Simulated assay, not measured.
Amino acid sequence: MELYLQGYKESAIAFELKINITTVRYHKRKIQEKFGTNTFIEAVVKAIKSKMIEI
Protein backbone atom coordinates (compact mmCIF):
# COMPACT_ATOMS: atom_id res chain seq x y z
CA MET A 1 0.00 0.00 0.00
CA GLU A 2 2.78 2.39 0.80
CA LEU A 3 4.14 2.27 -2.74
CA TYR A 4 0.66 2.96 -4.11
CA LEU A 5 0.41 5.95 -1.79
CA GLN A 6 3.73 7.18 -3.16
CA GLY A 7 2.21 7.12 -6.65
CA TYR A 8 3.75 3.90 -7.96
CA LYS A 9 1.81 2.00 -10.64
CA GLU A 10 1.46 -1.79 -10.54
CA SER A 11 4.30 -2.28 -13.02
CA ALA A 12 6.63 -0.01 -11.04
CA ILE A 13 5.79 -1.82 -7.80
CA ALA A 14 6.56 -5.15 -9.46
CA PHE A 15 9.87 -3.81 -10.75
CA GLU A 16 10.80 -2.26 -7.39
CA LEU A 17 9.99 -5.44 -5.44
CA LYS A 18 11.40 -7.73 -8.15
CA ILE A 19 8.15 -9.68 -8.45
CA ASN A 20 5.72 -10.39 -11.27
CA ILE A 21 2.90 -7.91 -11.89
CA THR A 22 0.36 -10.71 -11.39
CA THR A 23 1.73 -11.14 -7.88
CA VAL A 24 1.12 -7.44 -7.23
CA ARG A 25 -2.46 -7.79 -8.45
CA TYR A 26 -2.98 -10.93 -6.35
CA HIS A 27 -1.89 -9.18 -3.17
CA LYS A 28 -3.97 -6.15 -4.04
CA ARG A 29 -7.06 -8.41 -4.30
CA LYS A 30 -6.20 -10.13 -1.02
CA ILE A 31 -5.92 -6.76 0.75
CA GLN A 32 -9.37 -5.83 -0.58
CA GLU A 33 -10.79 -9.13 0.68
CA LYS A 34 -9.21 -8.67 4.09
CA PHE A 35 -10.76 -5.22 4.48
CA GLY A 36 -14.07 -6.37 2.95
CA THR A 37 -14.06 -3.66 0.28
CA ASN A 38 -14.98 -3.59 -3.39
CA THR A 39 -12.04 -1.44 -4.46
CA PHE A 40 -8.43 -1.09 -3.47
CA ILE A 41 -8.95 2.62 -2.77
CA GLU A 42 -11.61 1.75 -0.19
CA ALA A 43 -9.14 -0.63 1.44
CA VAL A 44 -6.50 2.10 1.54
CA VAL A 45 -8.98 4.50 3.16
CA LYS A 46 -9.89 1.90 5.80
CA ALA A 47 -6.20 1.24 6.48
CA ILE A 48 -5.57 4.96 6.97
CA LYS A 49 -8.61 5.40 9.21
CA SER A 50 -7.60 2.43 11.35
CA LYS A 51 -4.08 3.91 11.55
CA MET A 52 -2.50 0.82 9.96
CA ILE A 53 -0.69 3.13 7.54
CA GLU A 54 0.16 6.80 7.61
CA ILE A 55 0.09 9.30 4.78
Rank of each mutant, 00 (worst) to 15 (best):
I41W: 10
T37S: 06
K28V: 01
N20L: 10
E10W: 05
L5A: 14
N20Y: 09
N20E: 15
Y8L: 03
K49M: 08
K46H: 12
T23Y: 02
V45M: 12
G36D: 14
K34C: 08
S50G: 04
K9H: 08
E16N: 11
Y8C: 07
I53E: 03
K49L: 15
A43D: 03
K46Q: 12
I53V: 15
L17G: 05
E2D: 15
E33D: 15
L5R: 12
A12E: 11
K18I: 09
K9W: 03
E33P: 04
I48N: 05
Y26Q: 13
T22L: 06
A47C: 09
A14N: 05
K49V: 11
K28L: 14
E33C: 01
K51V: 06
I55P: 05
N20W: 08
K9E: 02
I48A: 07
L3V: 07
S50C: 00
E54R: 06
I21D: 00
K51L: 10
Q32R: 09
H27M: 04
A12I: 05
N38F: 01
E10M: 12
I21S: 01
E2P: 02
H27G: 00
I55G: 08
E54C: 05
Q32C: 15
E2Q: 15
G7Q: 00
T39Y: 06
